[in-house]
Computed example of a mutant assay.
Amino acid sequence: MATYFDPKSWSLAGAVDMGKRLLDPSWIDQWLGFTTSWADPVADLGSGTVTALMPDVLMTVLSEGILSRFGGQEIKATLLGHDLTATLDTFKLRRRGAHFQSKTVLSNLIWDSHAFDTVTVVAHGVRLIPGVPTKIRVQQLDIEGTIGIGALTAWVDAQNLDWRVRLDERGQIVATHRTRKMRAVVDGQVYDNLLTIDIRKASWYGIRLPRRVVAAPALLLDDLPNRADISYAHRRGDVVKFRLELPATTGSFDLTQIRDAIIAGTTLIVF
């Protein structure tokens, strides 16, 4: 049944009364409580509430809170002492037996000033250990992504190695020895931690050298930070595709800080 507005029945007093009801502070408080209700369990847990399902509740609350607040937007975080900024494209969480598994997809990632185009992180065997602070343990991290060849070359050159590395105008990787006046156009790839370098051409004081006399030996990368393993890293056009595997790791976080960071959109901290 349709209802029509009758100008004769309208009164200023009635309009003011309706405005008061709409702006009633208790109504506003109820609305704010509803829109941030996902954060309430985190506040309870942070104050010491303990339930049998706490890990499930906490993981669900955190994942839904982070995704709803930062999904499709820029996220800032400090992860085990490293600063990162990225766009959060995907954040999924599911239970796998006694533990959890998470999948995070980031784009335009800046990790300690290093730029990555895309990074996908799958965390296996995730466990939460209640306490102050709350601990998080991961059995294994699988990391896949792409990085621009220019960004990677700049990072290698900044390591102060014996060779300076840059890209020429054709996009080729050019390595120049700092003291021996040798210059080479190279390419490289890593499979199962074994780095092989392909020397396309080389010269010494401008004299072209036969490739057979400048062959580079394969190098086993067996002392990587955080005991990481490189499954592969190879160039495809202007980007390098890679996959890393990291063994078990442990971190901690403060529930109150995480909750406040999600609500305010500030930096998430895991230490």
Rank of each mutant, 00 (worst) to 15 (best):
A2W: 12
T3N: 12
Y4L: 15
Y4A: 11
F5E: 07
F5G: 03
S9L: 15
L12G: 06
V16G: 05
V16R: 09
D17G: 09
M18H: 11
K20I: 07
L23I: 01
D24N: 08
S26C: 04
I28A: 11
F34G: 12
T35E: 13
V42Q: 00
V42S: 00
S47G: 01
V50W: 00
L58Q: 10
E64D: 15
R69P: 07
R69N: 11
F70K: 00
Q73E: 13
Q73V: 06
T78N: 12
L88W: 01
D89R: 12
T90R: 11
L93N: 13
V105L: 12
F116R: 05
L128F: 11
I129E: 11
I129S: 05
G131D: 04
V132K: 10
T134V: 10
R137Q: 14
Q139E: 15
G145V: 04
G150M: 08
G150Q: 04
L152W: 08
N160P: 02
V165N: 03
V165R: 01
R166M: 14
L167V: 08
I173S: 01
V174Y: 03
K181Y: 15
D192C: 06
N193Q: 05
L195H: 02
D198S: 10
R200M: 09
I207Y: 11
P210E: 01
V213L: 14
V214A: 00
A215K: 14
R227D: 15
R227S: 15
A228Y: 06
S231R: 13
A233R: 05
H234D: 13
L246R: 07
T256D: 11
R259Q: 05
I263M: 06
I269E: 06
